[in-house]
């Protein structure tokens, strides 16, 4: 499944692109379709392509030498990932990109986008917008890891996931994710996440399923995340 010019224009980095530029980008790219669990790229691979997710969901994860994984972020349709190679020559991917479900992405040659950026300032500015938003997010996560207790970190990770993929329903908010994702996003273990979620369920803040959660008391979760008094 390909991507239309209209869809591509919704990608933050391409929001100011002309139709001609969008056509060139499409012409210099290929569509890659992967099944759940397969990788678009692995940490350490040469960053020859950057990707725009067309459909599905992709997890960006980093692994340390002892094999421990950290989930950096989840990518949703029309979001860009793996763009390092377009900015820095001979770069390697700093993380792996794994399909969380059957997914398709537009793979654009990094060298081609780099070349376009030299004559189109809007591309550099829009890429900077994306990068600065990632830096801000990482700074917040670093602060959380350094200063906040685990329950607060899990609440914040849950709220970040809610902002990205939550669905408002009659009595609260629904969202789908795995406990492992939540553990990786909040820098803790699966065991701790399960213990905290069970505790929140007892308090009536959430109802937790296997790979989904229903937030029955959103304000209660905000209260924990922000350390507000009851």
């Amino acid at each position: 499944m390909g991507i239309s010019r209209k869809d591509l224009k919704q990608v933050i980095v391409f929001q100011n692109a002309t139709d001609d530029d969008l056509n060139q980008i499409i012409q210099n790219s290929i569509t890659r379709s992967l099944e759940e669990g397969e990788f678009f790229f692995l940490q350490g691979d040469p960053a020859n392509y950057l990707y725009v997710l067309v459909n599905g969901q992709v997890k960006l994860l980093q692994t340390n030498p002892s094999g421990q994984q950290v989930n950096l972020r989840t990518i949703y349709p029309r979001q860009m990932f793996g763009a390092l190679g377009a900015v820095r020559e001979q770069a390697d991917y700093p993380a792996s990109a794994q399909a969380l479900e059957n997914s398709s992405a537009l793979a654009i040659k990094s060298a081609f986008l780099h070349e376009m950026m030299e004559t189109r300032p809007y591309l550099s500015f829009d890429l900077m917008k994306l990068m600065t938003s990632y830096i801000q997010e990482m700074q917040s996560r670093y602060r959380e890891l350094a200063t906040e207790r685990v329950e607060q970190r899990i609440a914040r990770a849950l709220l970040r996931l809610t902002v990205q993929s939550g669905q408002k329903v009659d009595e609260g908010i629904d969202l789908a994710f795995s406990r492992q994702d939540l553990a990786e996003m909040s820098g803790t273990t699966l065991y701790t996440v399960s213990r905290v979620l069970a505790d929140w369920e007892r308090q009536g803040l959430i109802r937790a399923g296997r790979e989904q959660i229903h937030i029955t008391n959103p304000h209660g979760v905000v209260r924990i995340a922000e350390g507000l008094e009851k």
Binding site: L159, T162, K168, P218, V222, E226
Partner: peptide, 12 residues
């Protein structure tokens, strides 16, 4: 309220 700047401002 804690609404200004809240993560859930788009939901509540």
């Amino acid at each position: 309220t804690a609404c200004v700047g809240c993560y859930l401002a788009h939901f509540c």
